[in-house]
Design a protein around this nucleic acid. Sequence first.
DNA 1: TACATTCCTG
DNA 2: CAGGAATGTA
Length: 628
Amino acid sequence: MNLSLPDQSMHSSADDEDKPEVLLPCFRRNMYEESLPSTPYSSSSIISQLLRKTLPAKRPMDEGHYFLCSADSGQEDRSSVSSKDSMAEAPSPNVSTGASVEGEPPISDHLQAKRARVENIIRVMAGSPINRPHGDGEKSELEGRDGRDGRDGRDAYRETNKRKQRLPQHQEHSLDAGRRSGRNDNSKDEECHRLKEQLHSMQRLLRQLQEKFLQVYNQEDADDEMNLDESAAGSEEDFERKNGRVVEECKDRVKIGYARESLEDALKQELSRAVTECVARVFRKIPLVGMSTPPRMCSSPDIGMEGKPTSQEAAQSSEIPIKSRSFDYYEDPHSPQDQTEALSLVVRKPVVTPLNAPSVKRPFPVHQAPFQFNYTAPLHDSQILEHLLKYGPHSSFLPCMPTTTALDRSSPDAVELPWDAIAMRSKVTSAHLGHHPRPSALGPDNLCLPHVKLECAELQGMAERNPYMSLNIQEGLTPSHLKKAKLMFFYTRYPSSNVLKTYFPDVKFNRCITSQLIKWFSNFREFYYIQMEKFARQAIVDGVGDVKDISVSRDSELFRALNMHYNKANDFHVPERFLEIAEITLHEFYNAISASKDSDPSWKKAIYKVICKLDSEVPDEFKTSSYL
DNA sequence: TACATTCCTG
DNA sequence: CAGGAATGTA
C-alpha cells in the first residue's frame, strides 16, 4: 500500500552490515595490531589518517569530497547519508574540484579566492598540479600501472582508492620530495610544527595511559591466573605475547571483575577523547595556517586547508623507518602504510574481528559477558570520527551501555548495570528539552580509580574544554531510544528512515536497526489508529451527532490513553499540535464510520493519507541526544 | 525481488 | 513490542 507519503523514501540506505561486528577496542587494538595484517585501517592512527586525508583531497576523484559533505550534515538530513550512499553519490571523476556538487549554491567570490589561495598552497606544498585534465596525471599513471584502462570513471575511482592502499613506498617518497620543495612559508611551517608537537604530546600521554593500563591489567591477571611464572618473565619482547595469551585464556572465563571492565572503559574513553581532541586541534589550527577566516569543516573547496600539516607529517615519513608497531599505534603517524590509506574515514568500516580468528583473540566472548565488550563498539575510533564528521562537534553521545537489541529484550539482567544510571539520568533531564545528559557516566570520576584519574587529568581537562567530545555510537537500540522514538511520535507519525537517522545520531544504522525503528513507528501508529477508531465508534455509540462535538483535550480519555502509551512517565509536555492532529484523526474516523465507509476493507487508507501529511518537524533537541 | 506497511497474534 | 503473513509498491 502506498500512501504517497511525501517523505517516505524509506529505501534502505542503511549500511548493509547486518552481521554483528566484533570490534576491538581502540586501545586493545594496539596490542593485537600485528595480528591484523590484512586490515589496513587498523594500522593507521586516526590522527594520521585525518591529516593524510588532506593531500589527496585535492584530487578531483578523491573522496575528500564527501568527507566534507558528511561533516556538513549536522543540521541536515545528509547526516543520514550512509557510507554506501556516499559511495553511490560520489561525484564522477570528471567533476572538477571547483565544481560545486550536490547542487550547492554557487560559491562566492570570497570562497573562490579562499580556495584559490589554499589550492595554491597545497600545490606548492605537494609539488603536484591540482586540476589535472581528466585521464591525465596520477590516474592514468595508476591505471597504467595496473594495466587496466577503459573502465568507467566510477570504477576507476574505486580502483584508484584500492590501489592507494597498496601504494608502494617509493611513491610516497617522491611525494615527500615534492613537498619539501615547497618550504617557502616559514610561519606556516612553524604552525604546522607546533601542531605536530601537540599531536606528539598527545600521543605520549596516550602511551602513558596505555602503559598504565597494561600495568594494572597484568597485575590483575597475575592475581587471577596461575601463570605467575610467565608474569615474572615479563621482558619487553614477551610483553605483547604474554598479554595476548592471558587475554585468550580469559576468553573462557565467564566471571570477570567489573573493575577491569570499568578500567578499560575509562581508558578507552580517555583515549578516544584524546584522539578527538587531536582532531579538534587539527580543525582549529589548520585554518590559521593559510586562511584568515574560520574553518569550514564542511565545505569541500576548503578541505585543502588540511593539506598543510598533512604534507608536513608526510614529509617526515621518509625520515622515519617503519618500526615495530606494537605500542606505536597512536604514536607513529608517519608510517607509509598510513599514507596509502584510502582516506575512507567516513566510509570505512570498523575492523571486524571474527572470534575464531587464529591470531586475534578477544578476551571474552560477547555472549558470555553481555556488557563486557559490547561497549567497545561505541568507542571505535573510526566511529568517533565518523560521528564527529557527520554530526559536528556539538552532537552528544551516550555513555557505554549494552547495545544489542536482543539484550534489551531478553536479558533483563543485562540491563542492570549501566542502564540504571542512564535511565535515572534520563529521567532527571527529560523534562527539559535541550538540557542534555552529561556524557561519560563511566568516566574515571565514577570509577574510584585514582591512579587512572591522575594520569588522565590532563586529558580529562582537555576533554572538558573540548567541544569534540567523545561519541558513543550504539550498535543496537536501547530502551532510551524507544522512549525517544515514542516522544518523537508526538511530532511525526511517519518518519522517513533519513529522519530517523538524523534523530538517532548515536545509533549505528544498518538494515536491521532501520527496520526495527520503522517497525516501532508502525506499532505506534497501530496503537494510535486503534485508539482513534475505538473512540470514534464510542462517540457514535454515545450518540454524538456532530463532529464538532468531538474534541481532544488533555483531559480526554483518548489523550490519556495515548499519553500513557507514548509518554508513560508523563515527563514530557505533549505539544499542542499533537492534540489537534489527534482530534483531526478522530474526526476522520468518526466521519468515515458515520458514512459507513468502514465496510470497505481499505477504508482506513484514506485516513492514513490525511494524517501522514500532518507530520511536523521534530524539534532539534531530539537530534542531539539519544534521550532528552 | 526487496522493501514498507498493515494486520494479526502472542 | 516483535514476528510473521498478507498486501502493495517500485
